[in-house]
């Protein structure tokens, strides 16, 4: 186990170094941030001073080395636009995205897996066919359109729910959370539903396919022959057996939603990471983009590691191989 941890740690460092190079090169190639930073009528002297202050007059490789050096010390630079340390900026936006993503992915899983299992258990029932039809909708209708329709129906026409923002927040452990207040929950609901529809469809299809396959196996027949009820069989035999692909998708969806909830956050003016990255791309706020991408890489490394641990917890055969 220790060997496995060390191996994974070294892998993670290699991945991060490679990502750092790609990110630096990619971001460097985009536009010239100076044009955004100073007003068009600034003097040439102000312009040169600004360039020197941000180290943009040095050769690319020196900038990269300086960047790596600062990165190793945990210093990701200051935002051009907000003029504050990037790490603080990104981390201040993380909780908003975290709670939105968690609500969406967990909701999709908790609802999608049982529905999918039902559809796999009774594949010829009308309900199962309806669920599968709806899941195709969930896959194919674009997120931004669903978001707009949700706002139109629930915020504009019915006026039940707010159209955007985080609402009232409560500070716990120095971080602001929306889900702890009623008003915050109301604000959370529409964007979470918007984000979760696609995932709900996917979880349903995944659970259905797994269940259909497992209920035909001798494992289930043997459990039936010993008198176990259908509920026991679904809960104790089928669910553990289909959980590995579900955990995989849960992890990857969680990571990618955390990183790229851009569309939903923009539509619902949710002040999270997605909104931050879009704004920083528009204003060519390089340090923010870099810090954000590095954070995403770290997130995926951590999530993949957790998925591997979950595999081992779920399937003893994988444990044995390690």
């Amino acid at each position: 186990m220790l060997g496995f941890l060390i191996q994974r740690f070294l892998q993670a460092i290699v991945v991060l170094v490679v990502i750092a190079a790609l990110v630096f090169l990619g971001v460097f190639a985009i536009g010239n941030p100076i044009d955004v930073l100073i007003s068009p009528d600034a003097t040439q002297q102000i312009r040169l001073d600004t360039i020197a202050r941000y180290g943009l007059d040095q050769p690319l490789w020196q900038q990269y080395l300086a960047f790596l050096g600062r990165l190793a010390q945990g210093d990701l630079g200051r935002s051009f636009v907000f003029n504050m340390p990037v790490l603080d900026l990104v981390l201040s936006r993380l909780p908003a995205t975290l709670e939105l993503t968690l609500a969406a992915v967990a909701g999709a899983t908790l609802l999608g897996v049982p529905l999918g299992m039902f559809a796999g258990y009774r594949p010829h029932s009308k309900v199962a066919k309806l669920l599968m039809g709806l899941s195709i909708l969930g896959f194919s209708v674009p997120t931004f359109w669903i978001g707009l329709v949700l706002i139109l129906v629930f915020a504009v026409s019915l006026g039940w729910l707010p159209a955007g923002g985080r609402g009232e927040t409560v500070t716990v452990l120095g971080v602001e959370w929306s889900f702890l207040t009623l008003d915050g929950l109301k604000h959370l609901l529409l964007p979470a539903v918007n984000l979760s529809l696609f995932k709900l469809a996917m979880m349903m299809r995944l659970a259905r396919a797994g269940t259909r396959e497992i209920v035909l196996t001798d494992t289930v027949k043997f459990a039936r022959a010993s008198g176990q009820s259908e509920w026991t069989i679904l809960r104790h035999h089928v669910l553990p057996l289909i959980s590995i692909p579900i955990v995989t998708v849960f992890g990857l969806e969680f990571g990618s939603t955390l990183a790229f909830a851009v569309v939903t956050e923009t539509i619902f003016s949710w002040p999270g990471l997605g909104k931050l990255i879009i704004e920083s791309i528009q204003s060519l706020d390089r340090p923010v983009m870099v810090a954000y991408l590095m954070l995403v890489a770290c997130l995926f490394i951590v999530i993949n590691f957790l998925i591997d641990l979950a595999y081992a917890a779920l399937d003893p055969r994988i444990r044995a191989r390690r």
Partner: peptide, 24 residues
């Protein structure tokens, strides 16, 4: 269902596939 396993029981062909691989 109440009779299965109590009055009538069954053993299957392939023990690889009848036992659940993820349960003790």
């Amino acid at each position: 269902r109440a009779l299965r396993g109590r009055r009538l029981a069954m053993v299957f062909q392939d023990p690889m596939t009848t036992l659940n691989p993820v349960l003790t």
